[in-house]
Design a protein around this nucleic acid. Structure first.
Lengths: 344, 344
DNA sequence: TTGTATGCGTTATCAG
DNA sequence: CTGATAACGCATACAA
């Protein structure tokens, strides 16, 4: 039962009869410390099993070597892939990742931002809640000079850093493919109207049709709350049309799963009677018989890496002493191009 | 461009012409501080936008209010569900979660443990690598009195805390169901031999058969490295048998996906010519046509919660001052019962 | 009920 | 090349 005393530089200094500053510098291989002293310090430190106390260093340096990551939901494959990329990148910088999930609850989101702030993370990557309307808590981070990079779900706001995915490229590819294959009645099962993501899909959908000289039809555009029931209902409302669509683009893979199930129940053959194209978030279509014709891929892992990269460009540019000389970095707004991945 | 000076209790004390200790205590609503003083302190603190500096507190209290979670892989649904449960539980205790993924690389695992240690997390939840053989780095945590709860993939070692899942219950249920349905040749596609998880499956498989008076057949037990190729090969070797099994139990859902694909390619009808039962880690079977007859569910989210609960029982029992009076808590080893969930 | 003094472990600024 | 000392922000033992 050894005593609570952990080795500190002070202890090393005492035993070596040198000063703590010497030990500190020796441990950092500071050039001003003699070779022999440096060696002796390292040797004793090893023997004593000395390990720097990170909490003391964080305190002193005002740096925690930790970034905060706030995501709506870790059980969604899209986000867990993203955090995987983030964690990986942070690791290369010897940074740790402090995790929070908002569960799409703005109150929770606010609380988490609060704790991240008091923890003094060196930076944050955030994907906001579906319902976040007030951005004050994010602005508060500026007070502590905590840079923030928004990710995927970004606020409607000027002067922010973000990494997101341009759904347009992939969706236009999808529409072109479908039209090329002779489809003229192409349905859209969109998400809730208030989501930016829904709007983007809608705009691009319309643009893609018009660009191919196809007259959009309001009846072919339906919305779902993204619950299973709502997905099913939306699918039904499309399939019950007199002029049934021969292809359907769904808001995401979960909607696609529901849509496929309903279509099959109605005796339709997937990708023959009705083609499905979805925005990807599941990695397992290749195993399924009734899978979409193609998915619009958003590369969450790479997006996560990119967001980290941007965040670290800010973290590393921060003057350690308050050296106001350097220009503040300007905002970075990276937009990935989504891509159509065919499954058949 | 406001100055770097953030409000501290010292600043509040100065303005209120009281001592820092008074402010500190007032902020904590210490009963010894007068109502009026307490009020004034809170008021000014609010006005100044005071927020406690967590790094200072961590340093002083030797507590970081952070737990470390080390998992092999965040992109696996099982683990992302688990971390979701952990994060959630930690949140209720106002704790943060520091994240690390080993990617099944023992070196990486060791490095992460190292950083977690220097970060002085208050506790850890760890699921070890497939190849972890040396547990020294875990033992090092004891030096800092960092309690550790192993999760799911646990080391073969005495005197540890862990939460894991008893595969026996679910697997026996599965075997009973299959045998009840008339199956006599039941194959097993297991994982690598060195995995405890594989061994458990094998033992139980044998036990279940013998208990039902069925003579096990070595040829019906095959192993896979869990790569796609190996899964396919293992499946083939079973299906090519003269006495082809009429049911196959797979190591996990990914193996099941591969097995189902191969079986179909060979013209077999799933759950008619050959029944599949798998150990669950995918949440989407209900959408698939060719799905296993049933899955053995392990409840990762709940396991994560439970692991957190145990960890906090240790964290909270830790004497803040080195008060050696209390008995150290004895090890807790919780084993969940897996359950068979039918899909058809 | 409040104040004073101290220390947590480290780095940094001086001075030598 | 090295040492003494202050400082980071907070909590607490002790004193009043």
């Amino acid at each position: 039962m050894q005593r609570d005393k952990l080795p500190t530089i002070k202890e090393i200094a005492k035993r070596l009869k040198v000063s703590t500053s010497t030990v500190s510098r020796a441990l950092h291989n500071h050039p001003s410390i003699g070779y022999i002293t440096t060696y002796r310090v390292h040797k004793l430190a090893d023997e004593m099993g000395y390990e720097p106390n990170h909490t003391a260093i964080s305190f002193k340096q005002r740096k925690t070597y930790t970034i905060g990551v706030l995501l709506p939901n870790l059980s969604e494959a899209f986000f867990s892939a993203a955090i995987s990329g983030i964690e990986n990148f942070a690791g290369t910088k010897n940074y740790n990742v402090l995790l929070g999930q908002s569960l799409d609850d703005p109150e929770r989101e606010k609380r988490i931002i609060e704790t991240m702030k008091t923890h003094r993370v060196d930076g944050m990557i955030v994907s906001i809640t579906k319902n976040t309307e007030n951005y004050d808590h994010f602005d508060q981070l500026a007070k502590y000079r905590i840079p923030i990079v928004f990710f995927d779900r970004i606020p409607e706001k000027e002067n922010i850093n973000y990494v997101a995915c341009n759904l347009e490229s992939g969706l236009l590819q999808a529409l072109n493919l479908l039209i090329e294959q002779g489809h003229r009645k192409i349905g859209l099962i969109n998400g809730p109207d208030q989501l930016i993501a829904s709007n983007q899909r809608k705009e691009t959908y319309l643009k893609g049709l018009v660009g191919n000289n196809i007259q959009p039809d309001d009846k072919l555009m339906v919305s779902s709350t993204l619950s299973k029931e709502s997905n099913q209902q939306a699918t039904n409302s499309l399939l019950e049309l007199k002029d049934r669509p021969t292809a359907i683009i769904t808001f995401n893979d979960y909607v696609a799963l529901d849509a496929i199930a309903i279509a099959k129940k109605q005796g339709l053959v997937i990708n023959k009677d009705v083609c499905i194209v979805s925005f990807a978030n599941l990695p397992i279509w290749e195993y399924m018989d009734n899978r979409p014709l193609a998915s619009i891929e958003q590369f969450p892992y790479r997006q996560g890496e990119k967001a980290s990269e941007i965040l670290f460009s800010f973290i590393e540019s921060q003057p350690s002493t308050d050296d106001e000389s350097k220009e503040p970095l300007s905002n970075q707004q990276i937009i990935f191009d989504s891509e159509l991945i065919k499954h058949l």
